[in-house]
Amino acid sequence: MGVTCVCQVPVVEGKSVQQTVEQLHKRLEQLGAVKQGSFFVDCETYHATTNTGAQPSKLLYVMHNSETPLSCLVLFDGGPTLAADANFDVLMVKLKSHFQNAKGHKVESRGARYRYADFLIKVGTVTMSSSARGISVEVEYSACVVPGDCWNLMKEFMQSFLGPSVPDLPSVFSSKAEGLFAPADCMDTMNQYLELFSKIRKQQVLPGSGVR
């Protein structure tokens, strides 16, 4: 439960997604990071059926994170967030009349989990309808809960294996007042993933990215 940053890593020119991921793995292993199992984050999109007039229907995202295996995280488009029991999926089926599952919008990121001292690195392949669309990298620094205090350290660490493509401070943090954010930590991470997923969804299908 520390400060987390999720970013997208561009695919290296002339290489497939898989190859880029492997390259990242290799770099991490050279740094001395140890592989610790795997992870996944997925996101399903629902839209409200009760559409009121001209307003575009609001979207509801139901996400799962392997880090919190018993929870189901729900995010409303720019609205409230909700952490619920895993039973929430079942509940959504019962709410069919109000929220409809947008088929084919399921995005997920799967990959390996590395531990390097206090850093937890998750390199994942973002897949959408079984086609690899991009690479996500999540870096968590578990020794600190104040983003402003450890951002430079995280940035430096990310530079060591990502090279120049290091993101700026995530907007989730910059929009918030400085302070402890541990209670909402899980939601901050999921917000970042959601941002990343919607960015990738809008992207063109990458040329040369094969089906995994």
Binding site: M1, E67, L70, S71, L73, A83, A84, D85, N87
Partner: peptide, 11 residues
């Protein structure tokens, strides 16, 4: 463990 889901407990 019932409380673990809503409280988003990690591993």
């Amino acid at each position: 463990l019932r409380v673990a889901g809503p409280m988003a407990y990690d591993k």
